[in-house]
Design a protein around this nucleic acid. Structure first.
Lengths: 156, 156
DNA sequence: TATTGTTATACTCTATAACTATA
DNA sequence: TATAGTTATAGAGTATAACAATA
């Protein structure tokens, strides 16, 4: 394959296509932006941001989670997690609980309000995904998640 | 489907799976982060950032492109484009060319160095994608691009 | 009046480095 | 020495609002 052939591909309709169009990274970014902006419009201005929602999910579903654990699972630095935990605590969705065995640690314990907020938010997120992904059927969505997960697992 | 069934799915191995794991948005974000960080490590600190590379691609492949056109195609604001065009001009990869017919417009014209830098960068990006996506075969990559493009097209 | 390019400004997300209190 | 949580700080990336020049 020559350089020019690689650069200018041809679509089924016979139109020339930019090299960008066939790159995974470019399409991944653009699709990510589409989902992100629809997410914001569904969750609203005082709703949980994607990262705070993810954090709440881990807190609700993982007993005795520490902040370092959570940061590792979210793939961010411990320092960046502080603001996220502050927000969830400020909303009354979790408590920082002292651990007698190791006084450096503060376990993250969801409150009843936190569990309920999680349930409600999950419904909203499902609504959002159903709306923004209406052009993909169930099989295509599962295929997409499967492919994305493969990328994620090797990259960790 | 009840709320608890939707929340805690079961994998083939019989382990319970967090609701997060089946969300497209969550997996999209994580895969995006994996690609982004590999991109940086391949392109280096003084290499073109993803958005600058995308901008250069449009400039090289689209004759008589204006800044407003380019901003629209990249999906960002005109104001945000100024720094990108400044960088490309500073590297000597394009020129802002006055258009006699409409003196508000500055057409973006790639230089010879810009075209060459684009060719080199495209090779690097292909190397990067081949490396970071080694766990996907050609068919899977095309499938992924196809699915992502469907999301992008409806979201515009 | 509307549009192009531009500046100023602010906000979100994230990383690095350094601190404290524990271990 | 090493780790958990924290603070301060800085750098991308992006958006909004306002402006001058031009249409």
């Amino acid at each position: 394959m020559t350089r020019s052939q690689r650069k200018a591909r041809t679509t089924e309709a016979g139109q020339s296509e930019m090299a960008l169009e066939s790159l995974v990274g470019y399409n991944l970014k653009r699709a990510y932006v589409v989902l992100q902006s629809d997410y914001r419009s569904v969750m609203g201005d005082h709703g949980l941001s994607p990262r705070v929602f993810s954090a709440l999910t881990f807190v609700v579903e993982t007993p005795n989670l520490t902040q370092s654990d959570l940061a590792r699972r979210l793939g961010i630095e411990r320092s960046g997690l502080v603001a996220i935990v502050d927000e969830l605590e400020g909303r009354g969705y979790l408590r920082r609980v002292a651990v007698p065995q190791d006084r450096r640690i503060q376990a993250l314990s969801p409150t009843e309000a936190g569990v309920q907020a999680y349930e409600v938010a999950l419904e909203l997120v499902h609504d959002h995904e159903n709306r923004v992904l209406h052009m993909l059927n169930t099989e295509e969505r599962e295929q997409l998640v499967h492919l994305l997960k493969k990328i994620r697992e090797k990259g960790e």
